[in-house]
Amino acid sequence: MGNNDWGSPGPTGPAGNPWRQDDPAPSKAGGLATGIIVAAVAVVVLVIGLVAAGVWMWSSQGDGDESASPAFTAVPDDTTSAAAGAESETETPSSVQSSTPPRSPSPSRSPSASPSEPSATSGTPSNLTSQGWRGVSAATCNASDRWVFAGTNGEDHAVVCRVGERGDLYYRGYYNNRAAEYDIDMQRAGSGRWVTRSLDSNGSRVEISGSGVRVVDGDGDSVSSRDFTWSSEDADR
């Protein structure tokens, strides 16, 4: 027989086993690529960790006290500053205003005469009408009667009125903070002096004249009196 190819020894593997082959040994190029991949993964992990830490710090600052955040100084808007400057330039400077001479004050009007003082034109108080003192109802004649005498001192007011055109006389006045009305004793009237009828059983009465009003007792002694600063008698009534 010739050579037996089936009997010739074939390639031998590890441990003499022709059918076993181990993994080839890694080359140097493969080991370098693996190291680069591992380093890249480590860098990515590190970056992710830093980002996560920054997010956590930002959120923790936002949840804390707002007063701890740094204050910011507002920067004025250029347009607003320009507008404010334009307005200030249009205003009249105080130096120009102060240089304008002030107007001379106009002369004040003379105060009007008080209600119980004679007016400058007629010598009659402005609140005296033909029926008595305006604003002092206690010293005003009844109905349409007119006064024949009127007097005042600014506080006390008195009138002697006539009933109708030819009737009797009566006194109405505001005397010592009291209002009163009494009939005049016609037998004692005349010569600028008017005396009321007796006020009581003691004979007290009121005397009215150009000098003032006087209350006297039954003996004629003065009980109280008020002087007039202005009086007038109308003889035609």
Results as ranks from 00 to 15, higher is better:
residue 206 V to F: 10
residue 11 P to K: 08
residue 178 R to H: 11
residue 136 V to R: 00
residue 189 A to I: 13
residue 23 D to P: 06
residue 71 A to M: 11
residue 93 P to G: 07
residue 201 S to A: 02
residue 207 E to K: 08
residue 71 A to C: 07
residue 187 Q to I: 14
residue 176 N to E: 03
residue 93 P to W: 13
residue 44 V to Y: 10
residue 101 P to T: 11
residue 10 G to Y: 06
residue 63 D to A: 04
residue 107 P to H: 02
residue 230 W to C: 00
residue 69 S to G: 11
residue 221 D to I: 09
residue 9 P to S: 05
residue 201 S to W: 08
residue 176 N to C: 03
residue 227 D to Q: 03
residue 150 A to T: 10
residue 46 L to C: 07
residue 156 D to F: 07
residue 1 M to E: 15
residue 104 S to I: 12
residue 30 G to H: 13
residue 154 G to T: 04
residue 155 E to Q: 13
residue 90 T to S: 15
residue 58 W to Y: 13
residue 16 G to H: 08
residue 193 R to G: 03
residue 28 K to A: 05
residue 55 V to A: 00
residue 130 S to L: 14
residue 17 N to Y: 05
residue 166 R to E: 02
residue 25 A to M: 02
residue 130 S to F: 07
residue 94 S to V: 15
residue 156 D to A: 09
residue 78 D to G: 02
residue 63 D to E: 03
residue 48 I to W: 04
residue 185 D to G: 03
residue 139 A to K: 09
residue 27 S to L: 01
residue 74 A to V: 01
residue 207 E to I: 00
residue 112 S to G: 09
residue 36 I to N: 07
residue 137 S to M: 05
residue 113 A to R: 14
residue 67 S to I: 06
residue 143 A to N: 15
residue 137 S to W: 01
residue 59 S to V: 01
residue 188 R to F: 08
residue 142 N to F: 13
residue 97 Q to H: 10
residue 93 P to I: 11
residue 182 Y to H: 15
residue 138 A to H: 09
residue 38 V to M: 09
residue 18 P to N: 01
residue 40 A to L: 15
residue 18 P to W: 01
residue 3 N to H: 02
residue 135 G to S: 07
residue 15 A to T: 12
residue 178 R to I: 07
residue 235 A to G: 00
residue 205 R to Q: 05
residue 191 S to K: 02
residue 143 A to K: 14
residue 1 M to C: 15
residue 141 C to T: 00
residue 150 A to W: 01
residue 220 G to R: 13
residue 217 D to T: 08
residue 192 G to P: 03
residue 95 S to I: 04
residue 174 Y to P: 01
